[in-house]
Design a protein around this nucleic acid. Structure first.
Lengths: 194, 194
DNA sequence: CGGATCGTTGATCAACTTCAACGGTCGTGG
DNA sequence: CCACGACCGTTGAAGTTGATCAACGATCCG
């Protein structure tokens, strides 16, 4: 599963890694396996780790007083998951993160990642690119959510992350979009007969 | 208006700036004044600059085919404005940015900012903190938009940016929240009599 | 003064939610 | 290995929330 990560670094930094760098990287991470439905993090927890997903699928979400779940983020292979907010604000997590399928993660603490960025330029470049992309995707999601109807937001999702549909049950997709499962079902039906 | 910026850097980096650093910083920016209603950037433009607002108020928004405006971001004193997405993706802007009031900006190109970050550690620390905050605030806005009713989103806004109400007309607040001006008006009326 | 902009209000309409029921599939324990 | 319960998607009916359209008064500015 390190191959996945090394490939990812190469793709994101377009820098070649030396053997020593690869060693440093390997030593910085530890492997974690999660069973389906297992928590990586629960609301109220403090977490110093972020996790690179090499296998499986996870979600980050809250549960409101009516028991409804609201998914703010999904993570699959080659995505990062973690309570970035809690770390930067030094507060307990507002979110839960759990595994939707059996998953494999590479974990690193934020401090170690800072350290690694200094030692390995490719990692620094990678993090920078991730930050840029996440800014852009968040901004677009905000824009979609204030501008579009439920159907258009669903279409946006189809275009942006076509694989989500295969990977996640429909009710979670609905939660991610901020609509009820019933509405999503009807939207899909209605789109099928277009 | 440089005082505003220097104070901002101090607040965000908690590092003291040397006189030479202050000189380098001053040389990197150029002043720009905007009249109310004047564009800083229009959809389709390419922009290499980001702007630090020392005075006034701006908004970043799109206009849909029905002529409705959708505001993704506001900017007032001590905020940054610019087409970050267009710069990182090297694409023309999807957004318009214009001045809501007469405004004063300090402008710098992205390349120069990179350069400045290397020369002045306080700037680097500042940018890092901004990135973190913007991630967190975007995530929260997304969460609010998928979880909350119009009223709750308005309450969120009141708590997060209490000054927005004084600074921006109600129809723009509505646009930012993704609701119609009429709905916001009714929500406010209804909340007043609580 | 006259026009544009802004917030408000009422009436109607469309979008989405909620509640309830049903059928299919899948995983697990007996 | 089968049966049962849990979970998931679908559908219908009714209810709620928010959008739209239109009209009006107030304010601001040139």
């Amino acid at each position: 599963m390190f191959d996945t990560f090394l490939q990812y670094v190469a793709d994101y930094s377009s820098l070649k890694l030396s053997d020593e760098e690869i060693e440093v990287i390997k030593k910085s991470f530890k492997l974690k396996k999660l069973r389906k439905r297992q928590y990586l993090l629960q609301e109220g927890d403090m977490s110093k780790y972020i996790s690179f997903v090499t296998k499986g699928a996870l979600r980050q979400y809250t549960v409101d007083d009516k028991g409804h779940e609201h998914i703010v983020r999904f993570g699959i292979e080659r995505w990062w998951m973690g309570d970035y907010e809690g770390f930067t604000m030094k507060t307990p997590s507002r979110y839960n993160i759990d595994a939707i399928d059996d998953s494999e993660l590479l974990q690193i603490s934020y401090e170690q990642l800072e350290d690694l960025k200094k030692k390995v330029p490719a990692i620094e470049a990678m993090v920078k690119k991730i930050d840029q992309r996440s800014y852009v995707s968040q901004q677009r999601r905000i824009h979609s959510s204030i501008s579009n109807t439920a159907e258009d937001r669903y279409i946006d999702l189809l275009n942006t992350y076509p694989d989500f549909l295969q990977r996640f049950p429909q009710n979670m997709i609905a939660s991610y979009l901020g609509i009820s499962p019933e509405t999503l079902s009807r939207i899909r039906k209605q789109m099928a007969g277009k």
